[in-house]
């Protein structure tokens, strides 16, 4: 198996892929990006929170016209993972409004997005119908 690297640092690979967030120790606000401080309360200490891998689709769009180099159509959306909102593509589903519905249950899925010149495989994530 080739060496793998996650597309973003908040995706944890391995036997049980999942997402992690920086969680403010003071107020519990969660963030996926590197933090300077908490935008909700100003706190500067953070712990790591594991994000639920199942959730429901709160909103979506089907992008058919994108910047050059981006394959279309694709489904982009926001998934409510047990109270934490996650931005992701919705994958393994027909990109049609008939197949993608508000409130549908979804679960995390990972997939390779390509290998670099050293053979390391980058792995991305999305959510698929559960």
């Amino acid at each position: 198996m080739p060496a793998q690297i996650p597309l973003v640092d908040y995706l944890v690979l391995g036997d049980r892929p999942h997402l992690v967030a920086h969680e403010c120790s003071a107020c519990g606000a969660r963030y996926f990006d590197r933090r300077n401080a908490c935008a909700s309360c100003g706190g500067t200490t953070f712990g790591t929170a594991e994000i639920a891998t199942e959730g429901t689709l709160r909103t979506f769009t089907i992008v058919t016209f994108a910047a050059p180099g981006i394959p279309t159509p694709y489904v982009a959306g926001v998934v409510d993972c047990a109270g934490t909102s996650v931005r992701a593509n919705i994958v393994n589903v027909e990109p049609t409004p008939e197949a993608v519905t508000l409130g549908m249950p979804v679960r995390l899925a990972t997939f390779p997005i390509g290998a670099d010149s050293e053979g390391t495989e980058a792995v991305g994530f999305g959510f698929e119908p559960a």
């Binding site: 690297i5 597309l7 908040y10 996926f32 590197r34 992008v63 994108a66 694709y74």
Partner: peptide, 21 residues
């Protein structure tokens, strides 16, 4: 040519179209 994490999300590649839009 090689996957190198960068930016606030430690992304190794551009994310528009890969992680939402």
């Amino acid at each position: 040519s090689t996957w190198t994490p960068s930016g606030r999300y430690g992304a190794v590649a551009a994310v528009d179209g890969r992680i939402g839009t």
